[in-house]
Every structure is written in structure tokens, then in C-alpha cells.
């Protein structure tokens, strides 16, 4: 497999432990092999089928309807400050790269 587990972890936003990693690496290699069967099909002039139904884009009436309440969201979020939901920080410092 020509992609590292580390790269897959980053793509999937996951972080695995040592044993998990080894087991998964083996499974993934096997499964990709299984997927490669698709190379046997003649697909030269075939268009991909993204949607199985022919319904075009539909819109609904532009009417307000009850949504999720602020109370529910603030009650559910881990940390709320001044009515803002706090998320983890996105600026992580010059010494760390987020992308390879």
C-alpha cells in the first residue's frame, strides 16, 4: 500500500494505538486487494451513476419552521462562553505543520 497509515489517520481525523495500527494496516491491504477486482470490468464509455433516482433538484417553500433551540445547543455543547460555543483552537504554532 503506497500510502502511510499516518496519512490515512490525518485524512480520517483518527489516531490509532500501536496494536490497532498494525491490525488495521493488514486489514486495509487485504480490502484494497479486494477492491482491485473492479479493474477487471470494461468501463471505457460508461458514465458514473451518482444518483439512482431521476428526481431533479427540488426546493421547499421558503417558510420559517421551528428549528433547534438555542437552549438545546447551549445545553448540549461542552463549553459555552458569552453565547458562543467554544471549539478547539485552530492556530497551533509555527513549529507544527498540519499538512504534509
Amino acid at each position: 500500500m503506497d500510502i502511510t497509515i499516518e496519512r490515512l489517520e490525518r485524512l480520517a481525523m483518527l489516531r490509532l494505538g500501536g496494536d490497532e495500527r498494525n491490525a488495521l494496516a493488514k486489514d486495509i491491504a487485504e480490502i484494497l486487494d479486494f477492491f482491485r477486482q473492479l479493474d477487471e470490468v470494461e468501463l471505457e464509455n460508461v458514465e458514473p451513476l451518482f444518483h439512482v433516482i431521476e428526481k431533479g433538484a427540488t426546493v421547499r417553500e421558503d417558510m420559517t419552521r421551528p428549528g433547534i433551540s438555542r437552549e438545546w445547543v447551549e445545553g448540549s455543547a461542552y463549553r459555552v462562553v458569552d453565547g458562543y460555543i467554544v471549539g478547539p483552537r485552530t492556530i497551533v504554532g509555527e513549529e507544527r505543520e498540519s499538512h504534509q
Binding site: 485524512l11 480520517a12 486495509i28
Partner: peptide, 9 residues
């Protein structure tokens, strides 16, 4: 986890 990682790939 397996499916998400493969799916991302």
C-alpha cells in the same frame, strides 16, 4: 475506523 480510513483513502 477501518471504513472511515478506507473511505478517506
Amino acid at each position: 475506523k477501518r471504513r472511515i480510513m478506507l473511505g478517506s483513502y
